[in-house]
């Protein structure tokens, strides 16, 4: 029953998207990334849609994580990294001089490969973002935001009785869902996930994947993953990266069943990876 509804929703949105094309969230044009002398991303063009889970797949070192980190300028923290080209969020260039990366990252949240809760209480972990961005006017407000974020992170029921205990005391899967809750607490528009399940066991992975599926109703989700099964399970759009090039980008079903590029086909069928 639920599945059927989901399928219907998917279909409806797909149709919607193909009809209007106005809900493109991020556009990247001619993006080049250099780390010192090495050319990590070569001439990349992609449109990332709203309310969609977009998966970046490809062998290790293909540049998919690098590109993900370009989308909220996390690469700024690496001194040797240089980004050229144009990346627009809602038609505003995020590498424009006027843009403060701090504000950008409030709009484009990120979840990392390894769960990285701060050494603080569960509550303070989630409240951290809203506090620094001044999203709450009162303590009650903040409580509200925290609860809502934890509910969206699908972890509220597990932690509601111990909000003051340290976030590092949770299990791996719980920690990752806490980090997701922490990311959504700042009300981002885009959520970037860098291999969010690679450090988790299968049960925790299933929980997080289910959560990702729910998150797409409110956010544009971009997920980097090593696992093709995972990409097939959670994403609607898939981009295949190889050696710093975006080889193929399209509907997930089409990429997995009918890849146009021979390199994609090799990767999908397990010949390169």
């Amino acid at each position: 029953m639920v599945n059927k509804v989901n399928n219907m929703l998917d279909d409806a949105r797909l149709k919607d998207r193909t009809m209007t094309g106005t809900d493109i969230k991020i556009t990247a044009r001619n993006v080049q990334v250099h780390y010192g002398t090495s050319h990590a991303i070569k001439d990349l063009n992609v449109d990332i849609l709203n309310n969609t889970v977009t998966a970046f797949i490809g062998p290790s070192g293909c540049g998919k994580s690098t590109f993900l980190r370009c989308l909220n300028r996390m690469n700024d923290t690496i001194a040797s990294c240089r980004v050229d080209g144009e990346i627009k969020l809602d038609s505003e260039d995020i590498y424009d001089k006027k843009v403060d990366p701090v504000q950008l990252r409030a709009k484009v949240g990120m979840v990392f490969q390894k769960p990285n809760p701060f050494p603080k209480s569960i509550y303070d972990n989630v409240a951290y973002g809203p506090r620094i961005h001044g999203l709450a006017r009162s303590k009650a407000d903040l409580d509200d935001i925290v609860e809502k974020a934890l509910r969206r992170g699908a972890i509220w029921d597990e932690v509601k009785d111990r909000l003051q205990s340290p976030g590092t005391g949770l299990s791996g899967g719980q920690q990752q869902r806490l980090c997701i809750a922490r990311a959504v607490a700042t009300e981002p528009e885009v959520l970037l996930m860098d291999e969010p399940c690679s450090a988790l066991d299968p049960i925790a992975t299933a929980q997080v994947e289910e959560l990702i599926d729910e998150l797409k109703q409110n956010y544009s989700v971009v997920i980097v993953t090593h696992s093709m099964q995972q990409a097939a399970r959670v994403s609607q759009k898939t981009a295949f990266f190889h050696l710093g090039n975006l080889v193929e980008y399209g509907e997930t079903g089409q990429i997995f069943t009918n890849p146009k590029d021979p390199r994609t086909e090799s990767y999908i069928s397990g010949r390169i990876g």
Partner: peptide, 27 residues
């Protein structure tokens, strides 16, 4: 203090000083 801590904080849009005072130093 692991870099992941800092990344987590920067990823939420914290400035370096906020990261240092609220994440790195307490850790």
């Amino acid at each position: 203090v692991p870099q992941a801590m800092r990344d987590g904080s920067y990823g939420l849009g914290a400035t370096p000083s906020e990261t240092i005072r609220q994440v790195v130093l307490p850790a």
